[in-house]
Design a protein around this nucleic acid. Sequence first.
DNA 1: GCTATGACTTGATATGCATCAAGTGTGTTT
DNA 2: AAACACACTTGATGCATATCAAGTCATAGC
Lengths: 230, 230
Amino acid sequence: MSVRLAETPLIRSLPLFKEMSEQSFTDMMDLSMLQRFPARADIIREGEMPDFLHIVVEGAIDLFATRDGEESTIDILYPVSTFILAAVIRDEPYLKSARTLVPSQILMVPSQVVRDTFNRDAAFARGIVAELAARYRSVTRVLKNDRMLTSTERLANWILNSARRLKSDEFELPLEKRKLASYLGMTPESYSRGMSALEQHGVHSHGATIKVTDVAQLKEFARPALSDDA
Amino acid sequence: MSVRLAETPLIRSLPLFKEMSEQSFTDMMDLSMLQRFPARADIIREGEMPDFLHIVVEGAIDLFATRDGEESTIDILYPVSTFILAAVIRDEPYLKSARTLVPSQILMVPSQVVRDTFNRDAAFARGIVAELAARYRSVTRVLKNDRMLTSTERLANWILNSARRLKSDEFELPLEKRKLASYLGMTPESYSRGMSALEQHGVHSHGATIKVTDVAQLKEFARPALSDDA
DNA sequence: GCTATGACTTGATATGCATCAAGTGTGTTT
DNA sequence: AAACACACTTGATGCATATCAAGTCATAGC
């Protein structure tokens, strides 16, 4: 029930853990687990109570909401992010479900350990609050985009942000188109039509390859919001 | 540039400040201001950098996003809530604008003071993180509702939650219908039609008065999500 | 008490997007 | 290489909701 020594340096280097005391860190790791999951494994189900804080160390996580069997992807997490912090802190049921998109490694820290460490180690507390604030801002941006943009504009913004983040005007989709569609709040069909509509606005795509051919034109179409840096 | 002694007990009793040390609290109040604003006063504009943490002590605040002159209400805050904590913590530009809906009193704590106190007082840190987590869960719920429910279902859920919160099956709208419509992500016209559609589902309304005549029927229509307790 | 202003309602129409229904790939299995 | 599965695309249609356009109602000022 403890994380092996060989794996701690990677975890230690994460923003959330970097500043905390050595003592707090080793204590926490002694009480935590690092677990491997195959692709498409259920990690958390909406409505359950949080037992552990989860941290994606490797792989990718799909956070989604369910209602009447319908799913909607709320967020997609890559290393290194926590989930689902807010539920752990408030000790209230999860609002979202989580599953792996690809084989993943997840660090699991018992909720009570998180809360205890938060109270004892101010540096860890700062890390927690920074992470939480980042996630908050991220959902807020998604909500704003949902409310104020058409689905094709959301797609255009996603492409702009991806290109900026990867510092390249050409890149491969990092996930299935249907997942991306769900994340952007649209159907796969609308995604497909949106992508062909963007051929007129500075984007060329073929299969999973997306190429921004005219950034200025794409920006004009996308009406980008404040930079998407979380 | 400091809060008068007579007004501190109210503030002191808020969840955010209740547990912190007397010393931290008085220090913080010495460096803060309690300010009155008339109705419809701009408090914060999207894109600006956060100088102060704001706390609604009295009145009501409209948090909204803008794009191309269009506005969309993201949240409405009543005493006692903070805004906009996440921007203060990350020291990054506001994602939303804020204005008063009615004459209001707002406590303004300089950002740097918030950060310093957070590091020195673990009880205050707990308060901050609890507040932030609550706000996070609140936006998450709004996003889920936007994605998975029709506008009339969102309205039905809002009525159910209001009735539950007020512990009464009859109540008055606490704000303009157009504001509520915007908050629910719909136009005033759709709000109006939605409200008359709900006459078939256990709600009777006249002017600003709303009466739930059949909770069970309304619940069945609304397909309520996890309880809306933030 | 009349009138003006603005919020709200109601109706007609338009649009974005989902849904339903065939296709067309593309990669994998045998 | 054939065949299958499955993601994706494309087309036709329908629905939810926005938009545009008249109203109606309520409130505040004169």
